[in-house]
Computed example of a mutant assay.
Amino acid sequence: MSASILDIRTDPSRIDADEYVRELMRWHFRAETGCRFWLRRASALDFDPLTDVKGVADLVKFPHLIDEFRQAAVEDLVPRGLGPGAPIAGIYESSGTTGAPKRFVMFDEWLDAYLSWDDRLEQVAARSGPLNMLAVVPSGPHMFGEVTTRWARRCGGVKFTVDLDPRWVKTLIAQGRPGDADAYAEHIVEQAAHILRSQDVGVLATTPALLERFARYPELVGLINKSVRAIVWSGAQLDTDTRELLRSEVFPGIPLMGIYGSTTILGGTRERPDEDFHGAPIHDPFSPYLFFRVIDPDTGQEVEFGRRGRVVMSHLSKYALLPNNLERDMATRIKPPAGAIGSSVTEVGPVASFGGAPVIEGVY
């Protein structure tokens, strides 16, 4: 099979998933194409990826080793098969909620392909004309900042932004300083308010916690309803009652476009259009490249559709191999779209603790 099967497609429904996984193993575990991290790590595995991983079902053989990316040199994460000088969008880190951040390489080709798949905002811009974006999201080492920059370009507009450091808010909360955390969040809202008052904003991208703060101020609600054509939210969760209130009463007529993802899979989901689960959004991953399982936390076995369990995420592309990442979230397992592998998820919410430490979401 030609390695062309590994080229990212925005409609991969005709890809044989098992064949894709076998070719992916050959890419990441052969000296000519693999990265130093996986070529070195292979010797410590208790199976041979080249012979023992014959399809999607065998991916469970990989252990949960995402913590090793806290110390891995980014040079060791670049697959040789991409050739010298493959354009890199950035080096992005996990949020640091559960310990020292993990670092990953985001390649331009992958990010562009992912955004071509998630073209919801471009569809809005095609109907309404160019759209400027206000991104009140983590930037710097966080992937979401670059995603919103490229979204704004794809919508034919410019991006306005506000500095947001979610790690500082989490630190304040962990130190027992909720008042300081609240003051910081208000500082963020004040800066965003100035942009909304003075600029033409067609898309608002932010987190559920901050979106709820915007909703507290009638002036800001009026400004958003006047010009914003779409609201993109990404974060730990947006509970069903709040989501319904925002959609029907606070921002009626403005689509709320949810994303559930993680830097550990270098991407996220699309909210399934015109369908939900008892009022909760259904999140579909970019199959077969982003792959979800939902497991019983006690047995490690996958739960039935409609049942709740712990989320396990994988990134499967020629740009990175990040299998079986046990996330800090619980979710309900949902049947994926036709032709997709793995699962979709809904009713996502963080666990109380992870790795022996309490999970603090703060403004995210």
Rank of each mutant, 00 (worst) to 15 (best):
W117A: 11
I341T: 02
T207A: 03
K226G: 09
F29R: 02
D180M: 11
G96F: 04
P297V: 13
Q71Y: 13
S234F: 02
G202L: 03
T207P: 02
V136E: 02
G362Y: 04
N325F: 05
E93N: 13
P101C: 04
V359F: 03
N225T: 07
K159G: 06
R229T: 04
G362T: 05
H64Q: 11
Q71A: 08
Y319E: 04
A193T: 14
A357N: 13
A215Q: 06
R333F: 00
L316M: 11
Y184G: 10
P336N: 08
D182F: 09
Q237T: 14
I5N: 01
S248N: 15
A183E: 13
W233N: 02
I341D: 02
Y20F: 15
W233L: 09
V312C: 11
G81D: 07
G202V: 05
G261V: 02
V311E: 00
P358T: 12
R243N: 03
R22Q: 14
R120P: 04
R26H: 12
S95C: 03
R177S: 12
V311P: 06
Q175L: 06
W168F: 11
R120Q: 13
A215H: 01
I254A: 04
L115R: 03
S287A: 15
V78D: 06
S13P: 03
E244C: 11
E212P: 01
D46P: 06
Y92K: 06
L59S: 08
I8N: 08
T264V: 11
E68Q: 13
L220W: 08
H315N: 05
V363E: 00
M330S: 08
G342H: 02
G34T: 11
I231A: 03
L121Y: 10
D112S: 11
A135E: 03
S343I: 00
R307M: 09
Y184V: 04
V56D: 09
F62M: 14
H283E: 12
D274P: 00
R328C: 08
P84E: 15
R308F: 00
T242P: 03
R70F: 12
S262K: 00
I173Q: 10
P336A: 10
V158R: 12
S317N: 07
T207C: 03
G222P: 09
R80Y: 09
H187D: 15
W168E: 07
G309E: 00
E361I: 13
D67K: 15
R307Q: 15
R243C: 04
H28R: 12
D52H: 14
I282G: 01
M1Q: 05
D119R: 02
M143T: 14
Q237I: 02
I295W: 00
Q191A: 11
F107N: 00
S317T: 12
V78A: 02
L326V: 15
R26G: 08
E32M: 07
G339H: 10
Y260E: 10
D239Y: 12
F47S: 14
P138E: 15
R127D: 11
Q301E: 14
V60P: 00
Q301T: 12
